[in-house]
Write a protein that binds this DNA or RNA. Sequence first.
DNA 1: AGCTTGCTGAATACACACCTATTGC
DNA 2: CTGCACGAATAAAGCAATAGGTGTGTATTCAGCAAGCT
Length: 795
Amino acid sequence: MAPFRILSFDIECAGRKGLFPEPTHDPVIQIANLVTLQGSDRPLVQNVMTLKSCSPIVGVDVMSFDTERDVLLAWRDFIREIDPDIIIGYNICKFDLPYLLERAEVLKIAEFPILGRIRNSRVRVRDATFSSRQYGVRESKEITIEGRVQFDLLQAVQRDHKLSSYSLNSVSAHFLGEQKEDVHHSIISDLQNGTAETRRRLAVYCLKDAYLPQRLLDKLMYIYNYVEMARVTGVPISFLLSRGQSIKVLSQLLRKAKQKYLVIPNIKGQGSASDTFEGATVLEAKAGYYEKPIATLDFASLYPSIMMAYNLCYCTLVTPEDARRLNLPPESVNKTPSNETFVKPEVQKGILPEILEELIAARKRAKADLKEAKDPFERAVLDGRQLALKISANSVYGFTGATVGQLPCLEISSSVTSYGRQMIEHTKKIVEEKFTTTAGYEHNAEVVYGDTDSVMVQFGVPTVDAAMNLGREAADFISGTFTKPIKLEFEKVYFPYLLISKKRYAGLYWTNPEKFDKMDTKGIETVRRDNCLLVKNLVTESLHKILIDRDVPGASQYVKNTISDLLMNRIDLSLLVITKGLTKTGDNYAVKAAHVELAERMRKRDAATAPNVGDRVPYVIINAAKGAKAYERSEDPIYVLENNIPIDPQYYLDNQISKPILRIFDPILPNARKELLQGSHTRALSKSTPSNSGIMKFAKKQLSCLGCKAVISGSNQTLCSHCKGREAELYCKTVGNVSELESLFGRLWTQCQECQGSLHQDVLCTSRDCPIFYRRRKAQKDMAEAKLQLDRWNF
DNA sequence: AGCTTGCTGAATACACACCTATTGC
DNA sequence: CTGCACGAATAAAGCAATAGGTGTGTATTCAGCAAGCT
């Protein structure tokens, strides 16, 4: 089969006003295109279609047009000529494609929206909302272009990766290690209305936006992964981006049922969303810091293997009524712990177990092939396949328990979890009964924690090697007590292990006794996205010092230094940005929350840049009157930066840092609270910049002495009478300060120029995801202030 | 007049239920 | 074959758990004031 032809594109339009640029006013001014063949990194075509003249770009076909109509029609012809199989871009489904179509409509270009592979078939657009517990609410548009797959990288990344920000800039930085500049929409108009040279600048920017999605597609192996997934589950690729998990399971069910001449009922509005079933057992966490190795035993694909072992399926379920009618002998049925009856495979083999068997067997083959494969291309294919199979297997159980889904069957899902609960309890019991001193082992084993399909065991032995051997022995022994194919596996050892509570722990992860693989953290601030970076870094660094370096005093000192920096206002604003997802529209919230209120406020300020449902809202907490609620104190970081609003360090200490740090240090450091949060380092408070709101509005600004800050009056504008003699020294200090800030600003500026790919042009970027941006802006402000001070010497 | 006492409303503290976000498996 | 009006259905894996914030009701503390006493 010929490789796919992939088109990546991006558009720029002038003057975005309002939420969506106004199609009646704002013309499309540029379209950048990049065509590649799948698996090749050499572009087939690179071009830019622009309105008005544009200076040439090396290696790029620049096409200038006089009217917007010509631009749009040129693009349509280009699509037809290139005939791409796959159209990609960033946010093309919600922005670029619908915008082009609406714009064509406004300009009455009826012949524009014929882009598909069916003759004379028009492209159709429909509003679509997708909502699921897993992905939240997402608004998008469904665009039908027959014969071409649209693959929006934004949608794919949002589904597959949990990130704090999904801007193209931040996603590229994360996966490709390279940033792009973020240009504010007002500047786009200026560049377009400038000269051929500034339009060239815009074209380069636009091209980069087409270039990055292509790189992401490649790097994340999306084609392989999604094509494999589509093949395995039997759904179109578009479903994988626009629909949920359940359609995949349903599709497999239908395929299998057809082979067996079975039909699947079309159930409507049966199970209500309120009826639910009991889930898995989470064993009580014996919280603490363990300095002996903890072995972890895991069931391999627990729920799928339960469904296979006990033949759980729609077609093997025996309802009480069936039981009376059929009068089955007890030896031909299984009774589940939740008191449901299913026939054994000898009577009737279930469809679900068959689907699962195939998925798991195929995954095993894929994994084995993966091990053999050396060629990176082949490895990518096989890894994509095994991942797809794993995910498919895991969502079969969820499908049966989805009461608002197409085919709920709580008898199956509650049986699965009831077996699971029984099994984890059984495992815990066996481990603690078998591995005892009375049975000849060195120590009594103790299960310190376990969740759903795993148990964490402290065998009491001091070395990783010994723990591994006992872990393997236990796994083999216990596996033997279960029905096939249920299997308990020894997977890893944690040493040392910090158990904070259920679903929250950290430890060093060992799979071979010589060296640990990594530091593993679960559920704590290091992996959560609703904390500011400062907390994340602080916790990560502390754990690193405690677990890897075994340096508790060092960790403690590090925490103290950070707290001191925070209270002295020496922390970079980008580290204090908290982000939270906006999960529903403003008025659907029952209580006021910081990010929701801020989103509303931002909408009033400028609807174009305000966050929408499904977006993540970044904010910082600013200083305010005592007793003000957090939702009154949240503010957009860029707004804070632009208006010099003081943040509230005390809030960050009390509400962000203190509890997570104490949770970590409490089991390790006696008197952690006193030591870390109440020491002398917490007393050095720097005065924050007075804000121009509230009471400070009435305060009159007076000059103060540059030497001692005393208020001065009269003719002397620089120094008070006391400091008069130190004139030379203080002047040098001011000059030194200015030059230091200038060089800092210069360095940051250069860094941004490098990022934008040119050292000869102005930096336009205002990316709220980039730490350098915040530092550059701050340096600029500080520098301006220092210069003002310097000016006062020249009276 | 100056002090104490008792009352009252406001401010504060605290426990509790509930909502929201997020993660683990 | 296309465009338009109208109506109906659409689709959504699961539960367990922690933590932070808001709102509410109740208890406690405190400042301010008037009355009473010396």
